[in-house]
Every structure is written in C-alpha cells, then in structure tokens.
Simulated scan of single mutants.
Amino acid sequence: MRLTDYRALLVDCDGVLIDSDSGVWAALQGLLEGSAAVPARASVLALYHEALAALYPRFDELGFTGLLCFAHRKLAEGFNVRVSWEESLSFARSVQGWPLFEDAPGALLYLRKFYRLVVLCDRDAQDREGLCERLGLASEELLAPGAVNAWLDEQQIPQGQALSISVRVPADGLPQGSCLLRRGRKHAPQECPAEVCINSLADLVFQHQLSLRC
C-alpha cells in the first residue's frame, strides 16, 4: 500500500515524538555518578529498557510513574548504588521534561490534515494534559495502546488501513501496517522489515508528499 492508501496513523509517543532516551539518560546522571564504572550510554539505556519491559506486566498496578520508579531502583541495584525512594520518584517525574524531537510538532500538524491520527501513550492521568499541550494534541488524540482496536472500530476504520509508527521491532516481528522509524540511520529499501521505513518524521512528510504526486 502507498502512504496515501492509509486512513489512520497510530503514532508511538516515546521514541517517535518524545526523545525519551535522552530524557532518561539525563535523569540517570545522579545515579550514575555514584557508580564505580559507568557503561556506555547505549548499554545503560538497554538495561533501562530491559528493566522497564520486565516490569510492564504490573502496569495496571503501578502506573507509568511506578514503573519508572522501580526501573530506577533496578538499575541502582545493578550498579551497586544506594538510592532513596525520593530519588527514584524524582527520576520518574522527570518524564514531564523529556524533550520533543524537533520535527514532531510540525509533522503532526501536517499529517493530521490527511489522516485520523492518535498518539499511543501510557502516561498517567496527571501528565496527559501537559503532554497534549506540548504536542498540540486534543485530549481525544492521546490514546492508551490497549484501546487501539476499540478506537478503530469506533472510527469505522479497518485495521488494514491503519499505519502504526514505532521505533522498535518486537521479538515476534512487526505486524502488518507498520512504519519503522530509524532516526539518523540510512537504509536501503530492501533492508526495510516493515511496509514503510523512515529516517525521521520529516522524512515521512516528504514521502507522503511524493505519494500525493504519483
């Protein structure tokens, strides 16, 4: 399918619109300063994502803030650093200041002219309004990932006409209707494991404009 054949975009928040890795890395500096040996940034972030994924089955119990608190404590344990609950909560609340990718607001403004668009995000209720303000979203455009199918049914959009934009490939592979965002990494078309591969949201806008001309 061409980009213009899709009717809806399901956009992951973290990694696509929000530079969560940079936000997490900055918020971890206090913990890392107490460690005898600090691995490279990529290794630290990989450990963080691993800890978060292991905790995710408890999302309904802990909420997003709780997940980040416990992930912070898991990292501290791995680096043999003692941290207080206040420090772990401070790390979790840093989510409010995680930076936007520069191309995110403009791309959203352009893309919503052509698609029904929702941003998939697990933020707690206390953070949703602020996130909508930063991204220029209406509250109904911020959706919990588990609510996607119900939203598509409500909008009378078949799943095959919805394109999901994310930055990670699940262990069981990407489902149909996937757009893989690989910021800063050029790729050959034959290397793309998804229906669409992009280097940035600005690249997605450009590809959409090309599709309009075909």
Results as ranks from 00 to 15, higher is better:
residue 199 N to L: 00
residue 88 S to T: 15
residue 193 P to D: 04
residue 44 V to R: 08
residue 32 L to N: 10
residue 143 L to M: 02
residue 51 A to P: 13
residue 94 S to A: 15
residue 81 V to C: 06
residue 5 D to I: 07
residue 7 R to F: 09
residue 114 F to K: 08
residue 14 D to F: 15
residue 43 S to N: 15
residue 36 A to P: 00
residue 32 L to G: 10
residue 148 V to E: 02
residue 123 R to F: 10
residue 135 L to T: 12
residue 104 A to K: 01
residue 87 E to K: 04
residue 9 L to N: 03
residue 129 E to H: 03
residue 5 D to T: 01
residue 111 L to I: 10
residue 41 R to Y: 09
residue 65 T to G: 11
residue 163 L to K: 08
residue 208 H to W: 08
residue 214 C to V: 14
residue 12 D to K: 09
residue 19 D to P: 00
residue 190 Q to L: 08
residue 85 W to L: 14
residue 88 S to D: 12
residue 69 C to K: 11
residue 104 A to T: 12
residue 43 S to P: 10
residue 213 R to Y: 11
residue 169 V to R: 14
residue 178 S to C: 06
residue 162 A to M: 02
residue 212 L to P: 06
residue 165 I to H: 04
residue 76 A to F: 03
residue 87 E to P: 01
residue 189 P to G: 02
residue 79 F to W: 11
residue 93 R to K: 13
residue 78 G to F: 00
residue 26 A to S: 14
residue 137 L to W: 01
residue 187 H to G: 13
residue 86 E to T: 12
residue 4 T to G: 02
residue 127 D to Y: 01
residue 159 Q to M: 12
residue 18 I to K: 05
residue 80 N to T: 04
residue 206 F to Q: 13
residue 33 E to T: 07
residue 75 L to Q: 06
residue 79 F to C: 01
residue 10 L to I: 10
residue 166 S to I: 12
residue 12 D to S: 05
residue 132 C to L: 02
residue 211 S to G: 06
residue 90 S to D: 09
residue 133 E to Y: 11
residue 202 A to G: 13
residue 69 C to V: 15
residue 74 K to Q: 10
residue 90 S to L: 04
residue 122 D to F: 02
residue 48 Y to T: 01
residue 134 R to E: 01
residue 148 V to N: 00
residue 164 S to H: 15
residue 170 P to D: 03
residue 66 G to H: 12
residue 89 L to P: 03
residue 83 V to A: 04
residue 40 A to N: 08
residue 117 L to C: 07
residue 39 P to K: 11
residue 151 W to P: 00
residue 10 L to A: 13
residue 185 R to T: 04
residue 134 R to F: 03
residue 9 L to V: 05
residue 124 D to K: 06
residue 15 G to C: 07
residue 43 S to G: 06
residue 148 V to S: 09
